[in-house]
Simulated assay, not measured.
Amino acid sequence: MDRFDQLRILTAIVEGGSLSEAARKLNITPSAVSKQLSQLEDRLGVRLFNRTTRKLSLTDEGGVFYERARAILADLAEAEESLASQSGQPRGRLVVDAPVAFGRYCVAPVLGEFLRANPEVHLDLRLNDRLIDPIEEGVDLVIRIGQMKDSALIGRRLSKSRRLVVASPDYLKKKGRPKTPEDLKAHACLLHSLRRPQSEWQFMKEGGGVESLSLAGAFESVDIEVIRVLAIDGLGLAQLPVWLVARDLESGALEEVLSGHLSPDPDIFTLYPSARHLSPKVRSFVDFLVERFGGERAWWATKL
């Protein structure tokens, strides 16, 4: 192994927390990791880690060297991507951050198509619902649902996340079907507490504008997939995105109510740091997202 390989092993040990985790990440044996670490320490003439049977920690010298090693590897990756940019070939590590439910239901099922078309791209898909700073967290591209706000990031709108009010046939049989948004106040409503305010559902007025209804929820959760499960189980009405419940509507597990009363639907969009050069890997993934989810067509129904 060359010196760059030893630097990769060092960073993998630090970031993985153990020799065995570094070996797993690099797809080599733990003994090979241990041997290369020993050779690196012998060449440098310093001990990089304090080792006990239970713990592995960097020495002061090891901490300084790790930071330099990480910077060197980052520069190397940037240099390689720069060459790739000139040839236009997408390659390298691509870190994408997406909302949990949208990532599971919509992004993950189509990733194979992207990866087969771009075999030199190593995709790292991270799912979470919190707002992040892409530059600070080393993320190349963010997918979000909501309102695009002014920022130092480049944004590209994909489509609308259409929201429907749904309930199970069993619930509607027992409690009746609401005919107007105002009727919702007499029903058990399942609230998504990640929305603010979570107790408000909004509907478009006939003459323009938005009507906001404050509802006394029967249940609330930060996890939108939990809301879906409870709606199917007949515990109440829920206002959910069509891409989440499309299969349930087709199977009959859920039914749409208030179909004539539209909600102001949030945007699905991508964000990426404007301070970075748009590399082929990012550009190709943005184009892929536009192709799969762009426009006003019913893309959520393609997997039904």
Rank of each mutant, 00 (worst) to 15 (best):
K25M: 14
K185N: 10
S199K: 12
A108I: 12
V165Q: 01
T302D: 10
F269P: 00
P119V: 08
L254K: 02
D75S: 11
T59S: 04
L184G: 04
R228M: 07
S151L: 13
E182H: 11
R68S: 14
T53S: 13
P119G: 04
G217V: 05
R116A: 15
W243T: 00
R247F: 07
E206F: 05
A117E: 08
L19M: 13
R43L: 12
V95I: 05
R156Y: 09
L58H: 06
V33Q: 02
E80M: 11
R116I: 11
G295A: 13
P134W: 01
S284N: 06
F65M: 11
M148H: 04
V226C: 05
D124T: 00
Q36Y: 13
L194Q: 11
S263Q: 05
S212Y: 11
V139C: 05
Q202V: 10
P197R: 08
R70S: 14
K149L: 15
R51T: 08
P241F: 02
R157D: 06
F114N: 01
I72S: 08
L158K: 02
L44G: 05
E120T: 14
E291P: 03
D75I: 12
K25P: 08
L56F: 09
V139H: 01
R93V: 14
E206M: 10
K55N: 14
A84Q: 04
V166Y: 00
P169R: 07
